[in-house]
């Protein structure tokens, strides 16, 4: 799926490196759209682990709680619960990045 989109971007003259970012953007957009339409949970049933991985899975993890808690209002509903699924990924992803980055700087001296 991602490969098809990436190849599409590359055919317009982008290099593989340049095509990576717009590919991710399209996948995230699709993930959010399909969640909003209520199709994403069925896609995961079909696609299995592929659908749960970050990129599209992340978009799904943001939109799903937003839809779920909209009955509790914009602030305490959507606002408070938006990161209820994606939050742990952000917290520990960034923490891990910080630790690894710090270790790399201390051990190799390269920032």
């Amino acid at each position: 799926m991602g490969q098809v989109i990436e190849s599409g971007f590359m055919s317009t003259g982008m290099t593989a490196k340049m095509a990576a970012s717009p590919t991710a953007v399209v996948l995230i957009g699709l993930g959010a759209l399909f969640t909003g339409l209520g199709w994403y949970d069925r896609l995961v049933k079909l696609g299995g682990m592929g659908g749960s991985l970050p990129i599209t899975g992340f978009a799904n993890a943001m939109v799903a709680p937003a839809m779920e808690f909209k009955t509790e209002g914009l602030v305490m509903g959507i606002g408070a619960h938006l990161f209820s699924v994606a939050g742990p990924v952000l917290v520990w992803g960034m923490s891990a990045a910080f630790v690894v980055g710090a270790l790399r700087y201390l051990l190799t001296g390269v920032a």
Partner: peptide, 13 residues
């Protein structure tokens, strides 16, 4: 589902 597990539209196995 909302109380015990995950948001409805979250795709998980």
């Amino acid at each position: 589902e909302r109380q015990f597990r995950f948001p409805l539209e979250l795709g998980y196995q």
